[in-house]
Design a protein around this nucleic acid. Structure first.
Lengths: 345, 345
DNA sequence: CTGAAAGCGCTAACAG
DNA sequence: CTGTTAGCGCTTTCAG
């Protein structure tokens, strides 16, 4: 009779199911049954298998199993976000992970940096690893390249930005509505000279926000004091607003249509000492916004909801739901903190 | 002669290498050579294979290949951080991803929430997926459970917190040194009543920071005004400091030993209107710290360096480096912004 | 330069 | 209740 402690779990390479079977003195299929919790094994046999597995520190190879398994699921998801080093993306990521972990699904996360080339490469890398589903923030103008994968039945859900060229699920913020809400708020304070600071024109959500902003102004019969686009980082935003503040007839209010742009705008206002007399509303919340003086009024998005709903959509598809593709719109929330309530001079 | 466009790339399931071979009219091994860029294929044959692969939208199955491949590398890394929804973790994650993407390595990221159970499960999930290496922030008191895996040759590198019970690489901040630096800074402003607000005693870095703080005070012959530990979120920190401020003889200076604790402390100081006369130095930088009034003085960590060095260490091990395990300490940087330079009354 | 046969670690299908 | 055989998609080995 072989002693279970006879073998050194650490020496040599990784133990296989066959080695566990030999040590336990059973067939390999019995080990498979025990490891996968399948029925038809006596408790005593099961215990011997578990002891052997424990003694060898055995971990089943999920990929080898999935090669033959009928559902061919890797229990893996691919997530592509703006950058994992970004509060908005982090919140989306966390929500996706929370939905996945309970199902034993692991998440690959990649950063996009709004680079179409990176998107293609990241998606290809996910697909070569046979992820069960894809959750994507896209940077490409057209996602027709995903069509074959979609036809194979891989669930693909877009977050934050809508797909173009293919028909699939999307979970997005109400960008136009939120931007309109910001504009209406500033109009209600009496502002008529409102400046718009926005992200790259190539980004669909940026275009939506501008549209919502301009529509709201038009409804009130007001023309935008200025529209500055293609501001992709904090510093570009800061410089742009400083220039506006230094010019004749500066705006009495500013709408910054993105996270980093809001921070750049805050810097510009401080720099020129105008943060107490120029109103500011930002799109997307920023950390510590409540501790600034004045507090920063924002139209907050709900990235946790975006991530959760996108993940739920993927899992519903994997569970067989084949209803027509949906476009889920998550509302925004105006958070009043002071900066947006400064009246015009 | 078969037309390459005869088959519908979208119908049916995923194409295999065999199907590509049939369509190209070559053997499967030739396809393998082309896909993997191996030599000994005529350009014409290679082109036919690539055309067939393109027509079928073929993506090789990395896991199936790795099953037989001699190096048995999945080109996959497991990263376990505090929470992917946390600026510090996000910066570490991004640095790891940047180091990995160039090598064609994908990163699994999981959140720990300082839960030892979650750590064990996340590590097991990574190992069942045969990651090539592990980068871990640990929440367990002892990591002896990783010993067998380590002996099998899997590189395991600890970030932010040091391992205990096993001998392996670690990349950590100079926690004690940074905390001492904060204390010395406050002492230099003339403070003698300094309060300490710290994280869970069970976290090794928290203990290190307290030690550094107390040592620096002791060297100056000063006793801490108070030491409050086990503050694990923003609100607990806020409440603790409010209590200290309301008590007789409140501190003239505060050292908040972590990110969220700093934010809680900022709230408490505003709430009691004491932010202009109570000094504050935080450990770890916070967003918008420079826009507050006064700006928040912090001892900043360098999470990008932690992540980058940890990833480089893993790759060095994978490349065959078997030098003794190293403990790399990344220095901290005092960033003076105002709150730490408020003098005692 | 090319392909046929064997086998990686596991599960499916079936036979005992 | 248990074990045997075949084969998942690919790479290795070796023969042409």
């Amino acid at each position: 009779m072989t002693s279970l402690s006879a073998r050194d779990p650490g020496s040599g390479s990784r133990p296989t199911m066959r080695q566990v079977a030999e040590l336990a003195g059973v067939g390999i299929k019995t080990v498979s049954r025990v490891i996968n919790g399948e029925p038809n094994v006596t408790p005593e046999t099961a215990q011997r298998v578990l002891d052997a597995a424990g003694a060898l520190d055995y971990q089943p190879d999920l990929h080898a199993g999935n090669l033959r398994r009928s559902d061919r699921r890797t229990r893996t998801l691919g997530l592509l976000v703006g950058s994992v080093d970004n509060p908005f993306s982090g919140a989306v990521h966390r929500a996706v992970e929370d939905a996945a972990v309970g199902r034993g699904v692991a998440v690959f996360a990649s950063s996009l940096d709004d680079d179409p080339q990176r998107e293609r490469e990241a998606v290809a890398a996910f697909l070569r690893r046979r992820v069960d589903g894809l959750i994507l923030v896209t940077a490409t103008a057209d996602q027709t390249y995903l069509e074959p994968e979609l036809r194979r039945g891989t669930p693909i859900v877009f977050v934050d930005r809508e797909p173009s060229g293919i028909e699939t699920d999307a979970v997005v913020s109400d960008n136009a509505g939120g931007a309109a809400r910001a504009a209406e708020h500033l109009l209600a304070q009496g502002h008529r000279r409102i400046a718009y600071l926005g992200d790259l024109r190539s980004i669909q959500t940026a275009r939506e926000r501008l549209r919502g902003f301009l529509d709201a102004l038009a409804r009130a019969g007001v023309t935008a004091a200025s529209v500055t686009e293609d501001l992709h980082d904090q510093d570009a935003a800061r410089e742009a607003l400083v220039r506006l503040l230094d010019a004749p007839d500066p705006p009495t209010a500013v709408f910054s249509a993105q996270n980093l742009i809001t921070i750049g705008a805050l810097h510009a206002l401080r720099e020129r000492g105008r943060h107490r007399d120029t109103a500011l509303v930002g799109f997307d919340d920023v950390a510590l916004a409540d501790l600034l003086d004045p507090g920063v009024t924002v139209v907050a998005q709900h990235p946790e909801d975006l991530g959760r709903l996108a993940a739920e959509r993927v899992f519903a598809r994997l569970d067989g739901n084949d209803s027509p593709s949906q476009r889920i719109v998550v509302g925004t929330t105006l958070i009043v903190r002071g900066s947006g309530e400064i009246p015009p001079k």
